[in-house]
Design a protein around this nucleic acid. Structure first.
Lengths: 201, 201, 201, 201
DNA sequence: AATGAATGAGCCTTCATTCAT
DNA sequence: AATGAATGAAGGCTCATTCAT
């Protein structure tokens, strides 16, 4: 008689619907009714799984940013030169651009909230720290291996992340004018060229 | 009998108060009462000068982004090498970081809106085009003058703008962990190093 | 699990409360809160069944005037001489004077609106046309049957309706000075006497 | 140095503008700004001559109904048979229909207010009493002179006034379907025929 | 576990009125 | 006598949340 626990499935269902609705309408213009409809559940059911609209937004924040950082973290454990691996991260973003485009408006809204809310900023700052630590390790390896000029790996990681985040931002503004694969790859390439060791001639 | 026309003053007064309130509370959580109080006017007076809350938000969008691009546009007409001028833009951002920090949460909220609203995106896209055109001209000059390696100046401009915008984004997330002057300068320097002509050895 | 559909009941409940409140306070002075309270529902519930205050007013217009014309239309299908039937209409008004007195201030407000709003006037004109057509048929029958002097039945119907409407108006102004049963009956009697065929002496 | 007192002129100016605006928009939809503009005065000036919007409405009520009753009162002092004089009142209304059409929406709004406000109703009832008294005297004369069948002159006056008021109401609803001169004249004629003494044959 | 009718606090906006000039 | 910028109280409407079924 034990029915399988559907609550994880329901939660995922709700977050997925919420992402869709929030991306289209923004947090404030999105109605609980809209999320209910998009999820195929009733409004009351939403409250069985999340205690408030804010709880849905919070849960979504975790889910969205974990997804976003997965690429960078995965690459850390891969083979290849530092240059290859950093370009691989860039390439992964390019390949997943459609999945990103779904989440991007929501991510930007999280950034906006974080910019004015100390608590949210602390959470985002933590995620960013992880992200930066991961990229920092890649760069450290590159320096150790003699692939990159020496320099502060933390600060260089910030530079690279700024390129990726900045590209995402510009792409959100002008998807038709930004060509992620070419332009992000170019930017990272130029940046890495700037870190190349002088070749013995 | 002729009272001086105060309407321009009032409009500026309102936008200034709105920037402050919106930066603290976000567009939706900001109450017209808050803006009224912050501006030293009555709620009714706001409606004498702007026909709705949305109208205030729109007006603010123009005012905030014009301010943001002023730095890049000003540098175009300055002297110095391309490298100096691009680092000068970076430095200007660093110097005006406080003014930016006031506007940044609001700018991010505009980005978030643009990401989901075609109309707003068109406006922002237009501003971005101007911005990019200005940086593109700087890079073209650099290439023409033999200061930079040849390459697509449009795409390189996108890369530089991505660095600045991305740094701003990261700074908004972690103001205490991002040191604009050092890190942005480093990133731009590395990027420009990547564009340096091979020195004859 | 199937709850009975209460929406028709709710709508009637709301219109009934609205009639009471509007009659006492007028459309503009009536607050949605007042209607909510009078209906025993919450303010939010009003909006579940009518999308705005104006929608309630419009729905009420239909309901009130259908009620008002019911008397005249019913009599058309009754037996008796033309005189009897027209006096019967008058008598019905007298009998239902209390129900009318509840609706009269609201009806007058509709007249006032119709007098300045082309759209509302078109609706009211349509109702009036039905009403007049019904009375016209009664008069035509009277002429055909040789009970009334010949004359334009449309114009005579207008005259009778003017008497009824005019009496209602005066009664609304001076309920204590107008004695509907006597005075309206007298007026219709005199009018019908004026249409009597000369008796052979 | 004594300037002529313009206050009477200003008051008339304001009432005239108010009539126009109220007839078009109704009391509640009419803004003090609209009246100010229509009168060619400033909003502040309105308050120099009337202490509130309600005061303007009240003053207008007196002015409008005095105008309306003037016809009936004037005829009382004229020559001619009772029938001629009552038809003359009808004819006067027909001739002044355009002036009436301007005031009619406002008059109907006063009726609506009177129907629910005891105080206003008392004022209107007083005006109506005067009106009825005047018509009553005409009918009494008619009976005394042997022109009309004997009957309660008060009640007969109510009947006649009901015809005039009812016609006005119908005309307000359907100006294009009501032909005042023909239909009102017919109704009054029939009513008077109903009061005619049996002719000796 | 699920529903959706009902609630009511809260906000944008309007506009009669005031008053400094 | 006149102006019109400024005020702020008040109300229609929305929507997150609750709860009887």
């Amino acid at each position: 008689m034990a029915r399988p626990d559907v609550s994880e499935e329901r939660r995922a269902q709700i977050l997925d619907a919420a992402l869709e609705v929030f991306a289209r309408q923004g947090f404030h213009e999105a109605r609980m009714d809209d999320i209910a409809q998009a999820s195929g559940l009733s409004k009351g059911a939403l409250y069985l799984y999340y205690k408030s609209k804010d709880a849905i937004i919070s849960a979504l924040m975790g889910s969205v940013f974990n997804l976003a950082m997965r690429g960078a973290l995965a690459v850390e454990r891969a083979d290849g030169s530092t240059r290859e691996r950093l370009l691989d991260i860039t390439e992964r973003f390019a390949r997943e651009i459609d999945r990103f485009s779904r989440a991007l408006p929501v991510m930007l809204e999280f950034y906006a909230i974080a910019a004015r809310d100390r608590t949210v900023r602390a959470v985002m700052g933590g995620l960013f720290d992880e992200y930066r630590a991961s990229v920092t390790r890649l760069i450290e390896q590159g320096i150790e291996r003699g692939e990159l000029k020496s320099g502060d790996p933390h600060d260089l990681a910030v530079g690279l992340i700024a390129i990726w985040e900045g590209m995402a931002l510009l792409w959100a503004m002008s998807p038709e004018r930004i060509h992620w694969r070419e332009q992000a790859t170019l930017a990272v390439t130029v940046f890495l060229d700037g870190l190349a060791l002088p070749t013995a001639s």
